[in-house]
Amino acid sequence: MIEAAAQLAVNAVALGAVYALVALGFVLVIGAVGAVNFAHGELVMLGGMVAVGVASLLPADLPVPGLLVLPAVLAVMAVAGLFVAGVAYAPLRRAPPTSVFIATIALGLIIQHGVTAGIGPEPRLGPPMIDSGTWHFAGIGLARQQLATIATAVALIVGVHILLQRTRFGRRLRAAAQDSEMARAIGIRVNVTVAVSFALAAALAGAAGLLLSNQYLVTPTDGAMLMLKAYVATVIGGWGRIWGAALGAFAIAVFETLVAAWTSYLVAEALLYVGVLAVLAFRPKGLFGEVEGRRA
């Protein structure tokens, strides 16, 4: 009983940490260019597929296949992010934000159908982060897979946090996100910070795709659901607030996992969107927006 509850909590945290990665990337792009990247969900899916592909090149029976695949996924997806910026944002910089919405929706569909056309619509099994088994803490056995997922996601989130909050480049990136005209006037090359934001966003999406690809498999049509979760997390977290969105995503996953455990996944999803409507109605600035008190 205690073990089941502990495992449930670990599952919730693992999914939460992965959703937080997805939402972080999503909101980074919103901050950088003031427009939503509707292809973000497809980037998560693409990251999962890249992980499947890279893992197939590795010898079987490695102790930490996912961990070995991770750097390649991050690198490939960062390049994919630059590509997204190049085709769906850069040409439309001076156009209204709706043009970027439409271009990224189109790009997302191209990615989804491209993957389906290339390798078929079937779900694929990604590499586990670590070989299966349980770890024991104080007499409670917990799945190693989930713990490794948490560790990886948390490491990435901490890395992004250090980059954005503690480095000069990260602060310049945040300054450019808050007021790009002002940032340019003090010498910040905003096209560089925008490109880095897209690359980072896609790399995080890819990492999330890898982390989901073993437990949940990866299917070419996964993008829309993930995109919706990221969008909801951003709304809950206070539009455009980086850490608010990450927290929002975490909350969604915990809510889903716990409610699904008592009822069913469908009920959990339905209640989630009821909750979102309530947030929009009663706290339009987001659950964490005002508490945080500042834009990050």
């Binding site: 945040r174 300054a175 808050q178 002002m182 940032a183 340019r184 006037a185 090359r189 905003v190 500042r294």
Partner: peptide, 21 residues
């Protein structure tokens, strides 16, 4: 504008426009 900053132009805009975070 970023080149002008490097060439020695400093601009303090109307309404300050500080970076809030």
């Amino acid at each position: 504008p970023e080149r002008r900053a490097a060439l020695g132009v400093g601009w303090c805009p109307e309404g300050r426009r500080l970076f809030p975070g």
